[in-house]
Design a protein around this nucleic acid. Sequence first.
DNA 1: TCAGTTAGACCAACCGGTTAGTTTTTCCTC
DNA 2: GAGGAAAAACTAACCGGTTGGTCTAACTGA
Lengths: 210, 210
Amino acid sequence: MDEATLREKSVDTVERILRAAAEVFAEAGFTGARVDEIARRAGVNKAMLYYHVGDKRDLYEEVVRSIIGKSAERIEEEIRQEDSPEEKFRIYLRRFAATLDENPVMPPIMMRELASGGQTLPRAAVEGVARVVSLLSGILDEGVRKGVFRPVNPFLVHMMVAGAFIVYKVTAPVRERAENIPEEVRRMAPELAGSIAGDVEAMVLRAIRI
Amino acid sequence: MDEATLREKSVDTVERILRAAAEVFAEAGFTGARVDEIARRAGVNKAMLYYHVGDKRDLYEEVVRSIIGKSAERIEEEIRQEDSPEEKFRIYLRRFAATLDENPVMPPIMMRELASGGQTLPRAAVEGVARVVSLLSGILDEGVRKGVFRPVNPFLVHMMVAGAFIVYKVTAPVRERAENIPEEVRRMAPELAGSIAGDVEAMVLRAIRI
DNA sequence: TCAGTTAGACCAACCGGTTAGTTTTTCCTC
DNA sequence: GAGGAAAAACTAACCGGTTGGTCTAACTGA
């Protein structure tokens, strides 16, 4: 193996470790996660975790940082300047939904993180959310200026959208298991895109449109 | 001490234990919570937890049950038969907000509970939520029949309301600490009632009203 | 030679849970 | 109401399994 291949192999190992760690942390939370379990799922010896990444806390922070960092960027990328405010809002909402659909480990980790007051929440993550909210704020402002939206608190809108999406994602297993709930609720798809994302979009738009 | 005083003293001890347990579970989650810490905060010997309540799991289930159980009842109680659908909806929303304001340990516990797929969620808790949703479902149905609401998925509505409230509650410490976010977001009150509850109410009603 | 890797033994600290024994309260009896 | 047994409440110390983390010795492929 030449140097490049070697580095690649090593990068691959680190990635496997982080992916496994993300999974286990998502399932069990920080204290509930077992380092041995992470090593097992990554298919590496436990010593490799400490060799490549560091201790349990380092592992966790790395996971949180890498997962949440991506989200904001993706949303910003797709919004084109010439779109109408309503179209921009749709893109914001759909990209956000897609991000959650694509990263199933994100909602549980975020939720637990928030539940513990976000003490270990990397600054990058907080900034990511702040950027999304300020992006949304710009969209709503533009809508107000153009006379298509009524003035509303952007933070509140994001809270409703994000809250609904995250809670929806995360209640999927409970809904499936629960017996005494209506069949139509039980059968709701676990994905946001193509199912409830559209309904949320319609409801929120009806609420903010003039 | 006569019998009444003793029973009261014992009840008091159990209450102190449960209150301390709720606190610690809210801060650290089930696996993160330390039984010794709960005992310390309750000001009792650790063995007393086992003597009065049971093991860690029993402690936890008792906490979750007592907290979530109340919520559904309270909402049901306050909705009078003669109210209009819109008024009923307002009561549902305000009572829910008030419950979260009054029980600050509830949002973090619920979030962590959901984050772990509700594996340890006592049946009573799931039933509580189901009851709230079916209550809301009845309100919305009635509204549709009377021609004041358009048909919407009640589960979705609850998800948006509950999601927004819970996430709002739980992001309070992060909002306070974050530096690069707008001042008006940072200064938003931690309470729901009297602050964002009214805005959420207005937005959702605008979305579902004919 | 050397970074990356493995198997696996090992350890100290932690933590849930128990136990043996003590104090306090209740309750019965004379 | 004195006495004393029984029950309830409580404590300090301990136990044993778990778990994060370390270490050694050996192997691999470039």
